[in-house]
Amino acid sequence: MNKTAAALLVKFAITFIAALIALSLIIPNWWWAVLVIAIIGTAANYFLGDLIILPTYGNVLASIGDGILAALIAWVVALVWPVVEITIIAAIVYAVIIAVAEYFFHMYLESSEEVQP
Rank of each mutant, 00 (worst) to 15 (best):
A44W: 08
N45Y: 08
W32L: 15
Y94H: 07
M107R: 10
N45I: 09
S63M: 09
N59P: 02
L48N: 03
L35R: 05
I64V: 15
A71E: 07
A38Q: 12
I53N: 09
T87A: 15
I98Q: 00
Y108P: 00
L72C: 12
F47Y: 14
V100T: 05
A78Q: 03
M107Q: 13
A78V: 05
L69W: 04
A74L: 07
L35F: 14
Y94E: 00
P82C: 05
V34R: 09
A95S: 09
V93A: 05
G65M: 03
Y46Q: 14
A71P: 11
F47L: 15
I97E: 01
A90T: 03
V60R: 07
I52P: 10
I64W: 00
P82M: 13
D66E: 13
V96Q: 01
A38R: 13
T42M: 13
L61I: 14
I53E: 02
I89T: 11
N59F: 02
F105P: 00
Y57T: 11
L51N: 06
A99Y: 01
D50W: 06
W75H: 11
I98C: 04
W32V: 13
S63H: 06
V83H: 05
V34P: 07
I88S: 14
E85H: 12
L54A: 04
G41N: 07
I89A: 12
A44Y: 11
V84T: 14
A33T: 13
L61A: 12
A43E: 04
Y94C: 00
V93C: 07
N45F: 10
A91V: 03
G65L: 09
L79W: 14
P55A: 10
I97D: 01
I89S: 07
T56M: 15
T42G: 10
I68Y: 03
L79G: 12
I39P: 04
D66Q: 05
V77Y: 06
P28M: 09
Y46G: 12
V80W: 15
L48C: 09
I64Y: 01
